[in-house]
Amino acid sequence: MTAGREPTGPEARLIPTPSQTVGPYLRIGMEWMQAKDLVAPGSAGAVTLVGTVTDGDGEVVPDAVLELWSPPAWGRSLTDDGGSYSFTVVKPAGAHRHMEMFVFARGLVRQLLTRIYFPDETDANLVDPLLARVPEQRRETLIAKRDPSGGLRFDVRLQGPDETVFFAY
């Protein structure tokens, strides 16, 4: 189908193509370009970011894709059989001390957007305008935890009592 216009409105914008789930077989289409290292491992400030994706029963999600946006770096990591993903990242300098992350999976008719904040930015996080919009008891889900290995951990809970905060935009 060729692009169609909205019937009304001064700008006659095009009707967006709706989202559909990536389905269970995303691996054959998306695994060719895993991009786990947003910075070179071992470079200045490089830190490992790992996490596990779980569903409403606490079961791991082995068929998810995480895409990270930390301008200008982009990354993609597919979850393994244990539902885990990993990246090598560096904390952004400047005003935007966070990273955006999309979650795609079977069962999600569209991707989910979340945001990763850094645990050593306590003061900046306190005055962050977006965190301020999040109910206080849910903010912790957006702040990465320090991993015993020295890296960072950001688990994604799609549902349940500690459901990760997701965003509309």
Partner: peptide, 11 residues
């Protein structure tokens, strides 16, 4: 079991 149940926050 995968769709979020909490309200989304507008970004």
């Amino acid at each position: 079991k995968r769709a979020p149940r909490q309200p989304l926050v507008l970004l």
